[in-house]
Design a protein around this nucleic acid. Structure first.
Lengths: 138, 138
DNA sequence: ATCTTGACTTGGACAAAGTCCAATGTAAGC
DNA sequence: GCTTACATTGGACTTTGTCCAAGTCAAGAT
């Protein structure tokens, strides 16, 4: 994650205590937190950090391409720090757990020109849904 | 859509003016409205219909399997009346408009066994993102 | 045709998630 | 160590959606 802070500084990011804490919370997580979860964890390290700052910082990280925004249901968005490896998501329908997966091929190729309706398409995301091993057993 | 109302009546649904209007608004749309858009359109036909009633009715239609709930971004959920034909979605990154599309092949086939991590996968949804013709021009 | 009743609708209060803004604070270059 | 442009703060506000008690009504029974 020091890599991340390094990269950001090179891109003219001003490094503040708040931003450092948000980056540290995201660092190397296999689960993807909501903004409020990130805030709760950040408060443990820096009690006075404001909710708005966490939202601002997450938006900037997304805009810089360092973090991905994921919304698998109609609830809060989740933040995925693993933005540098293209991947898709496997979601447990029962417990909501998210796991990164790497399917073969390019999903964009499956959409013929006649099905693009004049859109300028830039991306395709695939969400696999099912039961995780734990919920299958239960 | 009289088919839909027919089916619902057979399942013990009480047919009210409000429910009829909501069903009519959804009927045969190739775009998918948000709940508030459905409400706005319903009000044109039945001015006194309440927002809560539209939310209730949409939830019931989803529970009955007649309509699909789609949440492609962190914003409002959209309602897809085309629940009986398998399809994927094309979403405008700017205005949020959704259109149904039919890609080739089965997206589930692209996920090798080694990437399934013991999940019992039942479904794969693909979301294509880009700018719609209107937002590309603007 | 009218009655009865339980299901439906209403509207306003409430909640969750996120945005906005003016005032204040501070990182980083000079 | 100054300066200043940029970041943070916290509270108000917006959007989307849920909840509830009271009133209304569809549809079967009489």
């Amino acid at each position: 994650m020091s890599d991340l802070l390094e990269r950001l500084r090179e891109r003219g990011w001003r490094l503040t205590a708040q931003r450092r804490v948000v980056a540290e919370v995201l660092n190397g997580q296999h689960v993807h937190y909501t903004a409020d979860e990130v805030h709760a964890l950040a408060v443990e390290r820096l009690p006075e950090i404001a909710r708005a700052t966490v939202y601002n910082t997450l938006s900037e990280l997304v805009a810089l391409g360092e973090v991905l925004e994921v919304s698998t249901d109609g609830r809060a968005k989740r933040y995925d720090p693993n933005a540098h490896h293209s991947h898709q998501h496997l979601v447990c329908s029962r417990c909501g757990m998210i796991r990164d997966v790497h399917p073969e091929g390019d999903p964009l190729a499956a959409l013929p020109e006649s099905e693009r309706f004049g859109f300028t398409i830039s991306e395709a995301t695939v969400t696999y849904r099912g039961l995780c091993p734990h919920c299958t057993a239960a």
